[in-house]
Nucleic acid binder design. Structure first.
Lengths: 342, 342
DNA sequence: AGACGTGCTGCAATCGCTTTCATGGCGCCT
DNA sequence: AGGCGCCATGAAAGCGATTGCAGCACGTCT
């Protein structure tokens, strides 16, 4: 039923080889003939059979994207970016949701990786060892939001985002800042924590109160909000907007005024940040660009086994693409309440 | 480099044919041999080449999901459901974002449809004519959130959701209810509108004020919020939660109290509904189930050209799967303000 | 004029797997 | 004991595209 290259060739009065070349390597076939073949193909509605092509070329024209949670606006935005860029390049995207589970993630990469040209692995939850194994397969792998020796990656400047946030809070007079961290084992959380302490250290008199690890969702924020108050912090920095929103919600519910009593800062600037009142001050992450750049990096840079070994025998990582972030000040942060009383 | 069926066959001392059967049609090969082959395959880490299989069987093991906007929590949730169910069935999902554009949607269905076993088309924006054409191709097509003659579909009971919402508002004393409709041409919006008027008609003294078509996003809600007040409605029903949130935001911003002055009802019960204060009263849609059932319906019911013609010559639609919805009452709805003054 | 290069084209092999068909061996029935 | 049929197996034919290689025709250089 579907029209094959053979059909086109026959109809155009050329051999299949010529028909193929007319479409894929135009410079190899005489102009007149080439145009004729193309016209016939168009008119017959010819669509190359991808399976057949893949079988011989080894390329599928598919990319795979693995994310921890499609419903998380952060990943949804990245997915959208990946999607858009891939389409522009004529690639299709196979999406998989790992349900925040490192093992499932590993399995998905293994299963899906075999049938695509490359895998974009977003905020991987898997261990470094599992990552090593995944890299050992011969599928180009690109990490988003995580760095790993030998792996190509696109990341944001986690530490700098925190630095900007802290500088902002410090400027408003906050000296005791709580941090609601991300999931245990989150690479980006570790970077932010690090940046947080460095930033605090460089700002005289600034103390950091770590509130521990929090599930990166609304309820996670709800569950730590009281700790902010209990620790007498005048500001809290959350691992992401969802957590910030949860904190905000709980604070307001118990009568704490934001930003009068406590300032709240999120991270990501997901759409939800402006859904609430007061609108969330947050660190804007170029979500869509993260996705786009991931595809570009994967296509350009990670063609079949990106890791090489240097003469010294060390594993050489391709330099990560690092995207800058920018603090967006909205209504959830304000001048610090006068310390203690008043 | 990758291990092929040939390798397995050679290693196991059987012909490729037998190896193939041992893995795909176990009953056709002697138990001892079968197990041996399977063991060898496992041990060699054999992974069938999908392209080769597809080339001969014509089945790809891929499903395609087309949604208007991946970042919209409604579609994200459906995508997640589709994803999960497909994985359980051993299928991969190719996701495409049509950017709310009917033409792009049509093109995507055409392009991607050719390389998958079936397409789940979610809330299609394309015209009925384009849908007809899409159906004419021989790719099984399943519609979510839209019905169309001759197409299999999974929908929610749009009208009933609105009915429940109206009944709730009516019970609270609201008599003048505004409706912020969905995008022009939205099938579900038409169903809801219809249900709205029917519900209103059955409830004595209830008036409906149509606010027109609204972009199904936060800003869309913001832009019609003032109309609610201007029309002296005491309650407003929005096409979805995002719009409801926008309305809520704007009302609060201009000092209208919710629910004291105006009650707001959303639709979908997306996660965002509980992010705000007051929490949104909304119609809960079984989002994940929508996705799961879509996959099931596609796989079971729409195998290659679901439409048939009855003896009478009419096009026979497979009966749509209709999922029920349920009103979730939260804090954005309350007893109607006494009419006019006081 | 002959040799050689260049530019197009077609033949045929090939990718890895499935599936039809033919074959050989064995058990069972009469 | 012979014949029939069934079961398990292997040989081989593709699925639809790409591509190395060879060949042909023509133009050019010597």
């Amino acid at each position: 039923m579907p029209v094959t290259l053979q059909d086109v060739a026959r109809e155009a009065g050329v051999s299949p080889a010529t028909a193929s070349r007319a479409l894929n390597a135009p410079e190899l076939v005489a102009p007149a003939r080439r145009e004729h073949v193309r016209k016939v193909a168009a008119q017959l509605g010819y669509r190359p059979n991808r399976a057949a092509r893949e079988l011989i070329t080894g390329r599928t024209g598919n990319l795979c994207l693995v994310v921890p949670d499609l419903e998380n606006p952060f990943f949804a935005a990245v997915a959208k970016g990946v999607q858009a860029r891939a389409r522009a390049l004529g690639l299709a995207v196979v999406v998989a949701d790992s349900e925040e589970d490192g093992h499932l993630e590993t399995e998905l990469v293994g299963r899906l990786g075999a049938q695509v040209d490359g895998v974009v692995l977003c905020s991987p939850r898997m261990t470094d060892e599992a990552l090593d194994e995944a890299l050992a397969r011969d599928v180009p792998l690109l990490l988003v939001n995580r760095e790993h020796p030998g792996a190509a990656s696109v990341v944001i400047d986690n530490a700098d985002g925190v630095r900007q946030a802290v500088a902002h809070l410090h400027a408003l007079g906050h000296r005791r800042i709580a941090y609601a961290g991300g999931p245990a084992g989150s690479w980006s959380d570790a970077r932010r924590r690090e940046g947080l302490h460095r930033a605090a250290a460089s700002l005289p008199g600034t103390e950091v109160v770590e509130l521990g690890h929090v599930a990166p969702v609304f309820d996670g924020g709800v569950s730590v909000a009281d700790l902010v108050v209990a620790n007498a912090a005048t500001a809290v920095l959350a691992h992401n907007d969802l957590v910030a929103l949860g904190i905000l919600h709980r604070l307001v519910a118990r009568g704490v005024r934001v930003p009068d009593d406590v300032s709240v800062v999120g991270y990501d600037d997901s759409p939800a940040a402006t859904l609430v009142a007061p609108a969330l001050t947050t660190v804007r992450v170029p979500l869509a660009r993260l996705g786009r750049d991931a595809v570009d990096a994967l296509v350009n840079h990670a063609p079949r086994a990106a890791r090489r070994r240097t003469a010294s025998g060390e594993t050489e990582s391709p330099a990560p693409v690092r995207l800058s972030v920018e603090l967006v000040v909205r209504d959830s942060t304000g001048v610090a309440a006068t310390a203690g009383d008043a």
